[in-house]
């Protein structure tokens, strides 16, 4: 505030609250002088006041400035007496009215003077800076106003947090990979188990099978074929690599047995099989057929017994006789 004062007012500017008396007295005297001037000679008083408020005498002489005080001076004597009874209690009319009156007068009517323009430019700059600052502060207030050390600390915390989150992500990724692997492994194990079950099912006779092989038909018209001959046939086929064997509608498995019945006929696994005996065998036909036809082999032995034997290769032999899966009573799987 000090620069705005003229040197004569240095007392007031230093102790504004403590020494109001000389200030108010000074003000009042000035105001009374002004109001007196206004009342007596409106135009002249306004010009004087205008000149006094502008301590630089230069602008007063400018051509653009001189018409200004005219309308202002016309307005002021009308305003002055009108406002005084309203605004003031009446005991100190000059001082109170002067301050407010100056404010009102400077606000309305608008006057274009050099002082107003310069102040307007400065205030425009102030408002501009104020708006920028407010806008930029409200942008991201947390970081904008922070000092350097705070920023460094925030950055450190963010770095730590990033590190922690990275670690967590890493461990979660590992966990996910592990789970995926284990589920893959479980899937693979299930697949292999199913595959193995099918293979074992073919061997155990619990599932149907098809594939290349031969069909062997033994027509025992004389009833001379006995159980041991059929057993020999089965053994021979097994030895030649037969994978699934079916006689008529009985599946031959690992524990199949062939017995002669008392009143003629043959039973396999306790089930009587009728003539002719039809063997359906899955295996490599090139191995199976020669194995049966070798000299002194199955075919010759059977033919010696007056039975007619026919061996045919087939691209697809269907072994569809099934045997129920047998659940062992005592033995349990030792794996797992």
């Amino acid at each position: 505030m000090s620069p705005e004062r003229t040197p004569g007012h240095h007392l007031r500017k230093e102790l504004p609250a403590e020494v109001p008396a000389p200030a108010s007295g000074d003000r009042r005297s000035a105001g009374e002088r002004e109001s007196a001037e206004k009342r007596t000679a409106p135009g002249n008083g306004a010009q004087q006041r205008e000149g006094r408020s502008r301590t630089v005498p230069g602008p007063a002489g400018e051509a653009g400035q001189t018409p200004e005080p005219g309308p202002a001076g016309q307005g002021s004597p009308e305003d002055g007496p009108a406002q005084r009874p309203q605004t003031d209690g009446g005991d100190e009319p000059g001082a109170a009215v002067t301050g407010r009156q100056r404010l009102v007068k400077s606000l309305w009517p608008p006057r274009v003077s050099r002082a107003q323009l310069i102040v307007a430019v400065l205030l425009c700059g102030l408002g501009f800076g104020l708006a920028i600052q407010v806008a930029s502060t409200s942008d991201n207030s947390a970081l904008r106003g922070a000092r350097q050390e705070d920023l460094v600390r925030i950055l450190d915390e963010l770095g730590d947090r990033t590190q922690r989150l990275q670690d967590e992500k890493q461990s979660l990724d590992d966990q996910r990979t592990e789970l995926e692997n284990s589920s893959d492994q479980a899937e693979e194990a299930r697949r292999q188990t199913a595959e193995k079950e099918r293979q074992l099912g073919i061997l155990a006779g619990t599932v149907a099978a098809q594939g290349p092989g031969i069909t062997l038909t033994v027509d025992d018209t004389k009833g001379t074929v006995e159980a041991d001959m059929l057993l020999d046939t089965i053994q021979e086929l097994r030895a030649a690599g037969a994978e699934a064997i079916q006689v008529n509608d009985v599946r031959i498995v690992v524990n199949s047995y062939v017995t002669d019945l008392d009143h003629g006929g043959i039973s396999v696994d306790g089930r009587k099989i009728g003539k002719p005996y039809r063997f359906k065998v899955i295996g490599k036909p090139e191995d199976l057929e020669p194995a049966l036809n070798i000299p002194g082999g199955v075919v010759q032995t059977l033919e010696k017994e007056q039975a007619t034997v026919a061996v045919e290769r087939a691209k697809t032999v269907v072994v569809d006789a099934l045997r129920p899966a047998k659940r062992p009573d005592y033995a349990q799987s030792s794996s797992r």
């Binding site: 505030m1 620069p3 705005e4 004062r5 003229t6 007012h9 007031r12 200030a23 003000r27 000035a30 105001g31 002004e34 006094r52 408020s53 502008r54 301590t55 630089v56 002067t98 301050g99 100056r102 404010l103 400077s106 050099r114 002082a115 310069i118 102040v119 400065l122």
Partner: peptide, 12 residues
């Protein structure tokens, strides 16, 4: 300063 009546644009 303006209210005091001693406003000076140059000083301002």
């Amino acid at each position: 300063a303006m209210l005091d009546g001693i406003f000076d644009d140059k000083v301002f």
